[in-house]
Amino acid sequence: MSPAGATTYETAWTDVQIASGHELSGQKPQVKRIGKVIYYRGGIKPLSGDFTTAALVTVGEVPAEFAPSYWQRSQSVISAGGNVGKFATAQVDAAGKIIIRLSPGNEVASVELKNLSGYTVD
Score class of each variant (00 low, 15 high):
M1K: 05
M1T: 02
S2R: 07
A4S: 14
G5R: 09
A6M: 07
A6P: 06
T7F: 10
T7S: 12
T8D: 09
Y9A: 09
T11L: 00
T11D: 00
A12L: 00
V16L: 02
G26D: 06
Q27D: 12
Q27W: 09
K28M: 10
Q30Y: 01
Q30I: 01
V31M: 09
K32A: 06
R33E: 11
I34G: 05
V37L: 08
V37R: 13
I38P: 00
Y39E: 06
I44N: 04
S48A: 14
S48P: 09
F51P: 03
A54Q: 08
A55N: 10
A55L: 01
A55V: 04
G60H: 01
A64T: 15
E65L: 09
F66M: 08
F66K: 09
S69D: 15
Y70C: 12
Q72S: 13
R73K: 14
S74N: 14
G81N: 15
G82D: 15
N83R: 14
G85R: 11
F87Q: 12
A88N: 05
A88Q: 02
A90V: 12
D93V: 04
D93Q: 07
A95W: 10
I99F: 02
R101V: 05
R101Y: 03
G105I: 03
L113R: 13
K114H: 11
N115V: 11
T120F: 03
T120D: 10
D122A: 09
